[in-house]
Each structure stands twice: as C-alpha cells, then as structure tokens.
Design a protein around this nucleic acid. Sequence first.
DNA 1: CGGAGCGTTGAGCAACGTCAAAAGACGTGG
DNA 2: CCACGTCTTTTGACGTTGCTCAACGCTCCG
Lengths: 237, 237
Amino acid sequence: MDDPQAIPAQGMMRRLDPAQWEVVRAAFKRVDHHVEKTVISRRGDQLDASLLVVAGIVGRQVPQERSRGHLVSLQVPGDFVDLHAFPLKRLDHDVVAITPVRVAVVCHRALRPMLDADVALSRALWALTLVDASVHRHWALRNGAMRARVRLANFLCEMEARLRAAGLSDGRRFALPLTQDHMADACGMTNVHLNRVLRELREDGLCTVRGGEVEFPDLARMHHAASFEPGYLYLPQ
Amino acid sequence: MDDPQAIPAQGMMRRLDPAQWEVVRAAFKRVDHHVEKTVISRRGDQLDASLLVVAGIVGRQVPQERSRGHLVSLQVPGDFVDLHAFPLKRLDHDVVAITPVRVAVVCHRALRPMLDADVALSRALWALTLVDASVHRHWALRNGAMRARVRLANFLCEMEARLRAAGLSDGRRFALPLTQDHMADACGMTNVHLNRVLRELREDGLCTVRGGEVEFPDLARMHHAASFEPGYLYLPQ
DNA sequence: CGGAGCGTTGAGCAACGTCAAAAGACGTGG
DNA sequence: CCACGTCTTTTGACGTTGCTCAACGCTCCG
C-alpha cells in the first residue's frame, strides 16, 4: 500500500484531469506514515517538499501561548497540504498529524521542472491552492459570523461534504476521527461548550457524534440548520 | 492620474521584481473609479478580468440573510483583488468598494499568454494569491481564537502594517476610512460592542480611532496588546 | 430645517467561558 | 481477569463577555 503509484485520485485530486493526475502521481517519491500528534513541519521551517494526504487527517495549527493551538485548517484524503510552501517557502503555522496518517511526498526539486514545462498543470495546482484559500475565507466567516450551534453544525457539514468527495461518507454516516478538543479548536469555542452544543444537535435529531463516528439522520435538514452551502468548496464533478 | 502606466509599485506589488512589475503594469488596460458602496462584482459571477487596487479600500463580503454582509477580507492599495478568479473563474463572495476607489483592470485574455510565456511571473502571481490565503488563515484565527479587545487591536495592527507597506502610514498615524460598522463586520462583533472596545483601547492609551484617522501613540505597546506578529503578511522587503 | 448616516450610551439578558469534578473508554502490566 | 493510569467525554455551578433593543446626539447635506 505504500507504492506512490498505487494512490487513487480521490477527493480534490479529481479536479485534475486524469492525464494531469498521472503526471502528478509520478512525481511522488514515497509514502510516509506518521502517528497521531506528530508535528510534521513547524512554523518558520523552510520546506523543500509538499504532501498529499492519502489517509487520515492532517491539521494546520497555530501554536498559542496559553492553551492548545488553534486549528486554522484540516486536510482530508486527496488534499494537498503545504502545496503553498512551493511558491512561498516559509510557513506561518505548524502541520500536525491529527490522526495516524499516510502522506505522499513530492519534492519541490522534482515539481519545479514539471510545472515549468506544463502550463496547464501549473494552473491546475494554482487553482487547488485557491480552493484552499476559499475554504479559509469560509472558516473566517464561520468563526466571525455564526453562533456556536450553527458554527458547529456548519463545520460538521463541511467535513461531511469533503469526506464524501473523498469517498469516505455516504451522506448519512461517516468516520470523523477528531476529539472534541480538536473540533473546539477548529470552531473557536471551548471543549465544554462544544460538548453541550453537540448534545443539543443530537437532541434535535440533527446529528449524533460519538466515538469518531458521525451520523446525519437527515442531510437536508442538517444542511439547513447549519446554513451550509457547499459552493465555496469547489468540489470536483 | 488614470494612465495605467503611471501606477507606482506600492504595497504587495513590491514583492514582484521591478522587471516583472513592468510586465504586469503593461497589461492594465484602464483605471476604473467606483463610488463608495459600489458592488464591483457579485457572488457567482463569471469574471474575465482582475483588479489591482490603486487607491481606496475594497472589501470581499459574503451577503447575510439578516443584517449586513460579513467582511472576509479587505484589500488596500497595491493588493490584487480577484486575481484568484483567473484560475478559478467563479467567485464565492461579493467585491465591494468600501470607500471611493480607483482600480486598474487587467483582462484575463491579456494575462493568459503573458503567464504562459513567463514561468517566473506566473509563480510570482501564484505567490501573491498564497499571501492572500495566509491572511485569510489569520482572519480565521483572529475570529476564532481572540477575544474582542485583542481581536480588534490585532485587526487595527494588520491594517496599519499593510497600509505602511503601501506607503500610507508612518507607524503612528494613518487614514483608515472605515466605519465602525465595517470594522465590526470584519471582526465578527456588533457595532455597539466594537464601539465600547474602541473606547477601552483609547482610555488605555493604545490607540485612538476617530473620523477615519487612527493613531497609535506607541506602536510596540499596541502590537504587544494585540498579540500582533506580522510574519503572516509576508510583507515585501 | 429636516433627514440620513454614523457614533455613543444605557439597561437587561443570553451565550459562552472558567473551574472543578466525576464518569466512561481504553490500553498496560500484573 | 483485575487494577491502574491516561485520555476523553459529560455534567454542574458560576462568572463574564458580548448581544439586543432602544434612545439620543452629532455631522453633513439637501
């Protein structure tokens, strides 16, 4: 399973056309495993490689003085993480394995000539980082403009939609291997309050979250309660 | 003043090297003026041109059902806005003139062959959109992890730093032509609460905001109170 | 002189954070 | 199998932040 050439085009990688995906896949030189909580790269590091999430969840975390770091983004299978390090080099956040993960590694030294030679591919990867930016804008919006209940529901809807694009949800049940602390850090609330809101959502029959498993009894009702409109995700297909 | 060839390389445009800037500048075909509150482009529009802010402030706003739209980003002179529309085409937010603005217009039809021919320039513009993304991450962090006082102070510090890079602040006084409603929408709080926090900052001698003019009596103290570290802005030089 | 937009203030309340404790879940070693 | 420690979830009590609603003043402009 650690042959980079065996990685399927899942999730956001399906925004590339199949030929482009072949080219990108050929550039991966190995697949790394990391255990939970591994800090894969640190704020300020000079990176010479980027990662594609193959399995598990990777987070971008800004370390905080008091308390745990805040999560500014989560990457699911099929997402590039640190692709922005290619043109930018220096990062402003840590990259952390939230769960045990498998990531494919592509060196910038290998990527550079490929992109120099292929304008369309270059633009496709640019677009991927722009989708990322769009998601960031949504996180800013969610954290700034929504109250806890809607905010959390909206977060769960986003995760469901992205995991579904990666083939990891059927629209009703899916694995979301995050602790309540993680979700609280991502949604900008305390784990205590998050726990209460989670109960509220469960009591209202909107969703149940238990043991890393999430169930939406009624996806449409959940989306509505969460003010969720997935346009900003620019999902493939 | 409306000759695109007379636009100086200010703010983020100084991340381009002078030769690149000449190339980009040559692509602008005109300079548009918009009055305050003009909606320059709408969510969902197909765009065939991008804009460079020459003067004034442009905002990206997500319309809300009840109440005013939330501001997910502000662009100051020297910032590209909608550059991400070039690879992405469809936008997920409105673009609004917060103040009277002057924007230089570059058609994607003109941009495309330029970028196809110039890999380095292509990568430089990619990097610009990634700085944008970094700022978005910071907005998510600010809205999610900071309390009102620090949040507002941090916002003001960001504006000061970016305007300084554009030659529009001396580190002590600067024009910030935003209403309290705008700042509240950007910081995710009500205008009433923002007003109180603003008074608090003034009473603590950290900063005064009045009539579109901001003054920081002591920049270092303000930065400290705001937990402001400008690394995420990737400012030129 | 009269609006319209913006800023300021007050009173009351709901949402959310803090602190503390306990109960479940899970793996480890005896 | 049980005892133990650690991590996570859950709950309670209480304090604070920030929101709502409402009013009033100020300034600019017609």
